[in-house]
Amino acid sequence: MDFATVKSQAKDQLKGFCRVCPICDGRVCSGEVPGMGGVGTGMSFRNNLTALAAYSLNMRTLHGCKEPSTETELFGIKLSTPIMAAPMTGTPYNMGGTIGERDFIGMIVSGSKQSGAIGWTGDGADPTMYDSGLEAIIAEQGHGIPVIKPREQGAIIERIRRAEDAGAKAIGMDIDGAGLVTMALKGQPVGPKTFEELKEIVQATKLPFILKGIMTVDEAELAVSAGVKAIVVSNHGGRILDCTPGAAAVLPAIAAAVKDKVTILADGGVRTGVDVLKLLALGADGVLVGRPLVVGAFGGDAAGVKIILDKMNAELKQAMILTGCSTIGEITQNVIYQGK
């Protein structure tokens, strides 16, 4: 199986829900939530891509970087790549349901592990969504990171306990899921958290706690003060609030404020290894990928997920060669063309 086969098969499997466009920029699927699109006008979805596209790279070829390493660590977990699978749920109403929730997340977690990455799992209105993620993590001996919606405090802590029992390497909450309509419609409202509420949740576990959905410097600093071990700069893939900037637009300021205090991850509009390089250069320590891995799973099961991740990591290595970066740690803002 190759990349072209994966895309072709995914297009058939996702028919009516995702067109598997040659350029996945959210234009065709604007407003399709539920579905694969961005909320409202789709501007937040598109801004993720345009923010990345706004940056150009300095090409450098007079150096000794011939075989770069993409190896990295996250909370002591050794990874072959800084590219990870973002938490995703909702195969019945977002992706057509030709693959069940448990099968889908199993493909994501297993394919990620096979690629030397780590898969994140999600939470949703249907309890089987979070359960399926934990089952997939258990099947891979704890190699996964579950992410919980910003539910009521007790419900979050109960899910943290189950993640601990599953042997998860870390635990997260996607605070950018606050106000999700699908959750409210199912009688499971979610919402923002006060600083005190966040601190209570962080202190409820000894696992590294990740807060996903940070888009401003002030909230990044609040997250650090609350004791989180990592943040994810993310606008929820453009699926929660219209007219937000792209993650790459706000990442540099956030990194400048908290880079040495917390692990910084980022997602949004990542389609290639060059996109990954840009986010790392702008201050991220790792990158999450979503929609491309949906194509991988629907087009080729766990093997398809691995094909997508391997392809993106190969692109990252090539970009590192051509920008003079031997390791992930050498990818800095020197890679970004500043202009005059």
Rank of each mutant, 00 (worst) to 15 (best):
Y93M: 07
N94H: 11
G96V: 11
G97I: 10
I99E: 08
E101N: 08
F104N: 02
F104Q: 00
G106N: 14
I108W: 02
K113Q: 14
A117T: 12
T121V: 15
T121I: 14
T121C: 14
G122Y: 01
G124Q: 03
M129W: 01
E135I: 09
A136Q: 12
I137Q: 04
I138G: 04
I138R: 13
E140N: 14
G142T: 03
I145Y: 04
V147A: 13
G154M: 01
I157P: 03
I157A: 09
G167Q: 09
A168K: 01
K169H: 08
I171F: 02
G172S: 05
G179Q: 13
L180C: 12
T182H: 08
L185T: 06
V190G: 03
V190Q: 04
P192K: 06
K193H: 06
E197F: 09
L198K: 02
E200K: 15
E200R: 11
I201R: 00
A204D: 10
T205H: 11
K206F: 07
L207W: 02
P208C: 13
I210G: 00
L211P: 00
I214H: 02
I214E: 00
M215R: 12
M215Q: 12
V217E: 10
E221V: 14
A223Y: 03
S225N: 10
S225P: 12
A226E: 09
K229I: 08
N235V: 09
H236N: 08
H236R: 02
G237R: 01
G237Q: 05
I240F: 03
